[in-house]
Design a protein around this nucleic acid. Sequence first.
DNA 1: GTCTATAGAAAGATAGAC
DNA 2: GTCTATCTTTCTATAGAC
Lengths: 192, 192
Amino acid sequence: MPYPRDHAARSREKLLANAYKLFISQGYDATSIDEITEGCQLTRGAFYGHFKSKSQLYSEAIVHAARQSRLAGDKPQQLNNKTWIRELLASYLDKDTSAKPDWPCPLAFFATDIAHRKAQVRGAYTNAFASMSTHILEQARTYSQCSEATALAVTVMLIGAVAVARTLADEELRRRLLESCEQIAVAQLQLA
Amino acid sequence: MPYPRDHAARSREKLLANAYKLFISQGYDATSIDEITEGCQLTRGAFYGHFKSKSQLYSEAIVHAARQSRLAGDKPQQLNNKTWIRELLASYLDKDTSAKPDWPCPLAFFATDIAHRKAQVRGAYTNAFASMSTHILEQARTYSQCSEATALAVTVMLIGAVAVARTLADEELRRRLLESCEQIAVAQLQLA
DNA sequence: GTCTATAGAAAGATAGAC
DNA sequence: GTCTATCTTTCTATAGAC
């Protein structure tokens, strides 16, 4: 074999990352496998060497992205819990889309799309959602008596905020929406 | 002409309704024009007699659905404002999908899809969202001092709740999510 | 592991008949 | 106003070479 040891793994990762980027910006249906492979200097043949189908790639991309989320990670030692959550909130609701991470939150970007996908994809989404809301609840409980209802409502508000903000044609309305949600979330989680 | 006077209008309405139903259940891309016309005992030719393109139909369906929403309508005289909003909330977050109206809220069902569509579609969505949040704000102000931030946050929470609930594979989690959001919305809008 | 070539299906939109 | 026929494009997935 003329390929470096980790060549296959790198190709796979490139395909996954590029596919996710395209799914985010164009949607699942509008993104073809040709397009995904082109951006990686590969062809369809390589794609099917790594993934069984486009649908399987979608599931994997969601799981991968959910794991990359800062919300899934651990708190840096030097920060206290309140400071950390406030920072996560601000970063999640950031108005500056160019400052977004490479793997924007799939919960917000694919919210309504998942309903039409196969059970496997819906399962991956469900797990990611449960994980995000649990994480918020656990953090909030380190300094307050946060109810499960509050955590669920705040989680879904954050997701809804990012999803809707992205669709709005009115820049000013988008800004107000994101700022409002940050403000209400801060109050709900007693971060003031 | 062998057709009844309102034949064209009825065909148009049938196409619009069936298309929306299919968009809701399968998504925009997965729904073909053949499928839309089949359900109405019509063919592609008839479709293009009424709509310039699939994309134009999508815009129209969103506007149409937003207008059908109970939130867009007026309060029945016999109800006071608080009672009415509570009822709207409960109906919007209803767990029983079979009880859903014929035109489920496009804001929730298409939230993440709109971002990939043309300016015209995004404009229609933006207007519908602004209208929903304004409506909530105005109603809440008839009995309380509700901030614009609260109205925006509650609106987006409701949309997010329905959008996410529909995707969850876990029935129990869905139930808890919808109930939590109703509870928090009632508190936020001082409906208790 | 990745390539090219191709099979096979389906879609959006148009043209012209009735 | 609606039909049938067709053009044209695009897509997923597979087969077999290297």
